[in-house]
């Protein structure tokens, strides 16, 4: 993994256009999985994932080679993605809900066989997670759904590593309480 990441840094620095699709391939599942829980529906998650990579590309084309070689690509990409998720949540809450459209239906042609997570499950957990405070939700999603290590989450959210650990602990406790309330 480490060698691949370093390798893609060098290839991006050398020829951004040629290496960019490999960067998208390596990060898109994680970004999309996280965005599914951090935005309100599949439609928003697709938008956010797409917009993230468009911004990543535009930024890369303005950076010199040395800067690209030294980038922590996943952390940096997630910083952009998380911002977009937050903006999306803000603008959406000021607007009335779109009605009559199934926003959880895939927008692009997706191969149903490729989708591991069940749509109903996604919906249920999104509901539960939406009741957890934002910093805790972000930490839980980035760590347990996306699989990012604590240190990287701390970097992305701009919080300390110990705060991130306590966000995670409290987030899980809050989720457990929400689930217990459901069954009572």
């Amino acid at each position: 993994m480490t060698t691949t990441v370093t390798d893609i840094n060098w290839r991006l620095a050398d020829d951004t256009d040629a290496a960019f699709s490999d960067l998208v391939r390596s990060l898109q599942d994680g970004i999309f999985s996280g965005a599914l829980q951090l935005t309100r529906n599949r439609h928003d998650a697709e938008d956010v994932t797409q917009e993230t990579f468009v911004r990543v590309y535009r930024a890369l084309t303005g950076y010199d080679q040395q800067r690209i070689r030294n980038l922590e690509l996943r952390t940096w990409t997630w910083t952009i993605a998380l911002n977009l998720c937050r903006n999306r949540a803000r603008t959406r809450s000021r607007r009335p809900e779109v009605s009559g459209v199934d926003l959880d239906r895939p927008v692009t042609n997706s191969d149903p066989g490729l989708i591991a997570a069940d749509a109903a499950d996604l919906e249920i957990w999104r509901g539960r997670l939406s009741r957890v405070s934002a910093p805790q939700r972000t930490a839980v999603v980035l760590h347990h759904v996306v699989g990012l290590p604590h240190v990287e989450i701390a970097e992305i959210t701009g919080r300390t590593e110990s705060t991130t650990r306590s966000d995670l602990r409290r987030g899980l406790a809050a989720l457990r309480k929400i689930i217990e309330e459901e069954s009572s």
């Binding site: 998208v24 391939r25 994680g30 797409q50 468009v54 042609n109 997706s110 759904v145 699989g147």
Partner: peptide, 22 residues
Amino acid sequence: LEQLATNAPHGLLDEVLDAVGI
């Protein structure tokens, strides 16, 4: 929570590459 990890939609890569013109 781990099981919520899923694949990005098929075609998203093309959408991105098309949007940035490559």
